[in-house]
């Protein structure tokens, strides 16, 4: 993995998500302040910024997970493929099948490895029969780069895997519903360096098929896996652009301070 990607292999993809003037309030807290951003298809976009800057909150706007939090109000416009996801005709449940999510802490269900992956496909009726379901599960586990490790114990509980394996299982689970976008909320923060490297490698492969948005605390990680980076600070999107440019030649002084470790 090269550390600093340059512009050449990235920006040609078309826009997948468009956000305009997005504001989020939790009760009296103004968590996101007028964010505009365009996220490209088949690209890894990293959200970086100090704790509490709103990057996770903004991520959760993209699949309407904020709807499940009492007191959260989202305003503004977010479009995926030109369709407003906050339109009243959009069913958030359907939306979440299209926009998969991987969480900070590995959260396998208390079920077998197989059932963990089959959960989404079963709910959405993606398989007509057992054979098809088996195929979907195998494909998802291969995409999650964990198939070889678990193929002999698909019916063992998913909670029995190691942390890194659990997180890859969760990625496989999210991939199994064939989403178009994959949101990752600090997917490596609970993992050791080796498991982190495996997951980062996986994220790079996922770029072939999905638009990946990753929130991370680690600037090295953002530099390693992403093509575009957005820097959030105190609820504002301060700077957004090519990862290489953000890390080598930021325009905003706050970005520079954060990247050089002066704030954060």
């Amino acid at each position: 993995m090269n550390d600093m990607r340059t512009m050449d292999n990235t920006v040609l993809n078309e826009t997948k998500i468009t956000a305009r003037d997005v504001n989020v309030h939790y009760g009296t807290t103004h968590a996101i302040k007028g964010v505009d951003v365009d996220i490209a298809d088949r690209t890894v976009t990293a959200f970086i910024g100090p704790s509490g800057c709103g990057k996770s909150t903004f991520l959760r706007c993209l699949n309407r997970m904020n709807d499940t939090i009492p007191g959260a109000v989202v305003t503004g416009e977010i479009k995926i493929d030109e369709a407003d996801i906050y339109d009243s005709r959009v069913d958030p449940v359907q939306l979440r099948a299209k926009v998969g999510m991987v969480f900070q802490k590995p959260n396998p269900f208390p079920k077998s490895i197989y059932d963990n992956v089959a959960y989404g496909p079963k709910i959405h009726g993606l398989a007509k029969n057992k054979t098809e379901l088996d195929e979907i599960v195998e494909k998802a586990l291969r995409r999650g780069a964990i198939w070889d490790e678990v193929k002999d114990r698909l019916h063992a509980p998913g909670t029995g895997l190691s942390g890194g394996q659990q997180q890859r299982l969760c990625i496989a689970r999210a991939v199994a519903t064939e989403p178009e976008i994959l949101l990752m909320d600090e997917p490596c923060s609970a993992l050791d360096p080796i498991a982190t490297a495996q997951v980062e490698e996986l994220i790079d492969e996922l770029r072939q098929n999905f638009s990946v948005v990753i929130v991370t605390h680690s600037m090295q990680q953002a530099a390693r896996v992403s093509q575009r980076t957005a820097f959030f600070h105190l609820g504002n999107l301060v700077e957004y652009g090519e990862t290489g440019k953000i890390f080598t030649n930021p325009e905003d002084s706050r970005t520079e301070s954060y990247i050089s470790g002066r704030i954060g």
């Binding site: 699949n63 997970m65 499940t68 449940v93 359907q94 939306l95 979440r96 099948a97 299209k98 998969g100 999510m101 969480f103 802490k105 959260n107 396998p108 269900f109 208390p110 959960y119 989404g120 709910i123 959405h124 969760c170 689970r173 999210a174 519903t177």
Partner: peptide, 20 residues
């Protein structure tokens, strides 16, 4: 986190409750 995981996969609330 288990609820979030299930909801994030596009399960409804009652599916989440029943199955997770």
């Amino acid at each position: 986190s288990l609820r979030d995981g299930s909801l994030g996969l596009g399960a409804t609330r009652s599916e989440t409750i029943r199955q997770v």
